[in-house]
Design a protein around this nucleic acid. Structure first.
Lengths: 217, 217
DNA sequence: ATCAGGTTTGACCGAATGGAAAAAATCTTG
DNA sequence: CAAGATTTTTTCCATTCGGTCAAACCTGAT
């Protein structure tokens, strides 16, 4: 059935996008990421979003009919990107190297995309009203799948046995911490971002792979 | 100088509190913790706060002249409570046991006070505008002090050497994760809260103390 | 150059919000 | 119980917010 000329907002039309549409939508989403990740959905006003994108409020609403549409567009994009590092874990790899790589990729994502991480974090903290379905769907499935892979490694004695799902949680928590709690990390370490992430990576590798207990021999 | 009869809001008077004042303020703060931790500062309305506390809006504003005052009162209380587990680390204890105990206490706090954790998390994520001074002050000082203690243990070879401050970050991140991201944890594990925390504790102990690498002997 | 479709703006609107004022009700204490 | 202090409610207000609308303005294909 034709969905091209119903009463949707103009920007949601299925019709092919204009150059200006593509440019402006990108511009809006990037600006909105700044604003939403710093103030949350409720804390941001459409006027602020528009100002951050360098346009008027009605102009922004021409591209996204509702404030919520901008927010949802950001969240949707985020869920996909966020799960990529986990997807890249390979069952036939060397377990410790796979996990080390996963930690590295996830930390790198925190370094490169802290705003996205904060947006996601705030959404989850507030009960994930807008991505409950993603949680129960694709994220759930992916974690289950990769947990099974990791559990396989444990059961065959290639790495120590812990709950594989909680291991994933621990990697999420520690890596995302550097994006989500960046202000706190900076206040306490006093160091610049680059060296913080370098130290973080070393610390996390040692902790997850070797632990704090001194090994004999 | 006398600060008792200036033009402060009534509730901020230095004069001794009545029974009703104490009761209602407690009631309000507990209700506000529900609301703020679920919706953030901007997402909560004074009407919602009042409704949650079972009173009218003007009545709530009689006790806290501004919405922000309620929020600040909660945050202040939180900073103190939140640092207690770290304070309890004892330099003259057995290092691994001290750290194990710290993990346990911090996780227990996430289990018992998830709302407070979420409130704190959202505040930090948003740049900690209201507790920048605590970060730069008491929190900074405490972490520095305890990091030095842990570093002492490392330097004397009693535990493995990592960056002590980042070790503390890792413990914060992993334990608070179970409060802040509870919705996600529940969606993925599907288990009830009790068994989740039990599994979490076991997993974190193994990870932090022994790591994933298989020990020879 | 034209003109149809796409884009931008200024003016405006109703609802919601944080808060003020003051009267009414209740409590406390001599 | 009386009187003062405290607490609660009713009413109201100025502002802000998300969103609409119609008119004006571009842009690109012919």
């Amino acid at each position: 059935m034709a969905t091209s000329d119903n009463k949707d907002a103009r920007a949601t039309k299925t019709r092919r996008r204009t150059r200006i549409q593509r440019e402006k939508e990108t511009l809006i989403l990037d600006a909105a990421l700044d604003v939403f990740s710093a103030q949350g959905f409720a804390g941001a006003t459409v006027d602020e979003l528009a100002a951050a994108a360098g346009m008027s409020k009605p102009n922004l609403l021409y591209y996204f009919a509702h404030k919520e549409d901008v927010y949802s567009a950001l969240l949707d994009r985020q869920v996909d990107d966020w799960t990529v590092p986990l997807q890249e874990i390979r069952e036939d790899g060397e377990p410790l190297e796979e996990l080390r790589g996963y930690i590295r990729r996830k930390l790198e994502l925190s370094r490169m995309r802290p705003r996205e991480s904060r947006l996601y974090a705030m959404e989850i903290i507030q009960g994930a009203p807008r991505l409950k379905s993603a949680l129960d769907g694709q994220i759930y499935a992916l974690v289950r799948e990769k947990s099974a892979v990791i559990k396989g490694w444990m059961d065959s004695g290639r790495i120590a046995s812990v709950d594989a799902t909680h291991l994933i949680f621990a990697i999420w928590a520690t890596t995302q911490h550097y994006a989500d709690f960046a202000v706190q990390v900076r206040a306490i370490t006093g160091t610049d971002t680059e060296s913080t992430f370098a130290t973080a990576l070393k610390t996390l590798e040692v902790l997850f792979l070797d632990g704090l207990r001194i090994r004999d021999g």
